[in-house]
């Protein structure tokens, strides 16, 4: 789960204040555990330092909360690369994958692309596990099956999410 890329993705939709960023993040990705301010600002300053964001304007008053951030070209590239790269097919990927799908939709990218890349990656591993399973003994089979069922479930969840979000894309973008 990469908070940096997530914030970059959110900034790509429109320039925002740090406070707005936190609210947008909480709304979409952290229903149960709101993000701490400190974490937001620490991440933003790291992104600023790496040239992935820049301060577009400072509004009257003092303090970091008055700065409005915008994403730089290299920031967009970074998001792009992140979205395009498959996650290592490990169990419990939902958060990351969900974030990726939502961000892709928010930034007008195709969620299907993420799905395709991820499916290829999952299948690569599943093929490997299947091969190991067919050659292995019973315990190998059981272990491989466990992993296979989890991977399949993740993939299926991802497909379902992508299908639903594609349907709701308009609504999501409107928010």
């Amino acid at each position: 789960m990469s908070l940096g890329q997530t914030l970059l993705g959110l900034l790509e939709t429109r320039p925002q204040h740090g406070y707005d960023l936190k609210r947008a993040y909480d709304e979409r990705f952290a229903a149960a555990r709101p993000l701490a301010y400190g974490q937001v600002y620490a991440t933003l300053s790291r992104l600023l330092k790496n040239g992935l964001v820049e301060v577009e304007a400072v509004e009257p008053g003092a303090g970091p909360e008055r700065k409005r951030y915008t994403v730089t070209d290299s920031g967009v590239t970074d998001v792009e690369a992140w979205l395009a790269a498959p996650e290592a097919p490990e169990p419990y990927l939902q958060n990351t994958l969900y974030t990726k799908v939502v961000l892709a939709l928010l930034t007008g990218r195709s969620a299907d692309g993420i799905l395709d890349v991820q499916r290829a990656e999952h299948l690569r591993l599943m093929r490997e596990l299947t091969r190991r399973k067919t050659d292995g003994d019973l315990s190998d089979q059981l272990i491989c099956d466990h992993a296979l069922f989890h991977l399949e479930a993740d993939l299926r969840w991802l497909e379902l999410t992508a299908a639903r979000l594609n349907d709701l894309a308009g609504e999501v973008r409107g928010r």
Partner: peptide, 11 residues
């Protein structure tokens, strides 16, 4: 089904 597809060489 991904588990079925996993028996293939590619998809």
């Amino acid at each position: 089904e991904a588990r079925v597809a996993a028996y293939a060489d590619r998809e």
